[in-house]
Design a protein around this nucleic acid. Structure first.
Lengths: 231, 231
DNA sequence: CAGTGGTCTAGACCACGAA
DNA sequence: TCGTGGTCTAGACCACTGG
């Protein structure tokens, strides 16, 4: 491993582990030069690479800081439903249906989220666009990884928005399918049972710790995903 | 604009314009140093950045070359159906149903692909996993942008595979929806009309020129998209 | 004003791999 | 073998901006 890769790796490990929280000031280039006994260009190379990935933010005179996680770090912006709806010129609204403290992942969900072992927070709600229900969301949050969620005030926001702003997740996995609406979803979304729905499942981890599992089911005739790519 | 950005931009422009084709040898670092009258580190910075984006490939002793477009450049690997199927341990097969030379985008498709003005190649076919039809694909290829497609031998591969290997696309846009199967798709996929299907539409450009429009419709019960992310 | 990152220079040594 | 990229050094000047 090259020296600049080692510096990069060390800093990234500190951030991912939660040792350095968002906003924490990273040692200056000169301090890092001294720590690693190397030239400033080598440190600069490592820090520049980290800032390009969005993990840190560099400000002149002030120094380098651990970046606050922001929404546009991923290319496919699955979770930010509000922005998609608002971008279409419609009014976005989240209606929380229930928040439950559970001692463990409920039966029937264990197959979908075997990672979480301890107590979890279960949330349910509906995403609305204008006066139309857009999709239902069921979510589990691991309270061992995110204990502050137990007492969090989600305000009027969906739990996903709160999580994005409060937890520095390191890995997420999505699964996107077309499924028929069951009777419960059909009633919530005002569509016939069996009507096509887009289901997005999302598993999120911080390092090896499970953070959350979300299952969103959207009306097929009112919602689609878009993604722009450049090679 | 900084000097290394200018070097990077110049080289990228040559590649995107098609002036330097995949496999073309880029001037050595020393030659570029001379051209731009700068230090080798500056040239190296530009070339390293280009190779990290996958646009060029650097080989010791041999030099730097324009990279052949490869499948894993995007995070969400929508087009590579074959790899997904094979990864599940099933046998992938593409069956071409028709290839048509058309003078223009057919009526009924113009709304979906208004970009293409001239003659296009229209293809239809079915993706199979083992002995089960997985999804149907309808595609239009702009022959003004990709004239070699008119006489191309797609072999046993889907047109998308051929395109990925022959055209350096610069931008792609996806749309993912859940739609009900119509009678034609239902018959091709052996499912009931109205059954939920995952539809992926993909528009691809090279610079401002349209390359292709593809519409894939997959059985909802047999196909899903997965995507891993790291912030 | 002074410290910080942003950028660049000139030069060096090394490992690799095609000739 | 020897040209190429990969990496690093020591030093420099500049622009920005917070104290």
């Amino acid at each position: 491993m090259t020296l600049d890769a080692r510096i990069r790796h060390d800093i990234e490990a500190r951030i991912r582990s939660g040792d350095w929280r968002p906003g924490h000031r990273i040692p200056t280039e000169q301090e890092l030069c001294a720590n690693y006994s190397c030239a400033r260009a080598t440190v600069s190379k490592a820090l520049t690479a980290l800032s390009r990935t969005g993990l840190i933010e560099r400000r002149k005179k002030a120094g380098s800081f651990v970046a606050y996680p922001h929404l546009n770090t991923t290319i496919l912006e699955v979770p930010d439903i509000g922005a998609i709806v608002t971008g279409r010129g419609e009014a976005y609204r989240w209606v929380m249906a229930s928040v439950d403290h559970l001692d463990a992942v409920p039966a029937g969900w264990r197959d979908d989220w075997p990672d979480a072992a301890g107590p979890v927070l279960g949330t349910r709600g509906v995403h609305w666009a204008d006066a139309q229900p857009l999709g239902v969301e069921e979510r589990l949050i691991d309270l061992a990884t995110v204990p502050e969620a137990a007492t969090a005030d989600f305000g009027g926001d969906a739990p996903g928005s709160w999580l994005l702003g409060h937890v520095a997740w390191s890995q997420a996995c999505h699964r996107i399918r077309a499924v028929p609406a069951d009777t419960q979803v059909g009633r919530a979304l005002a569509i016939a049972p069996g009507a096509p729905c887009l289901r997005i499942e999302r598993w999120t981890w911080r390092a090896t710790n499970p953070v959350t599992y979300a299952r969103q089911t959207f009306r097929g005739d009112r919602y689609d995903l878009s993604a722009d790519f450049r090679p």
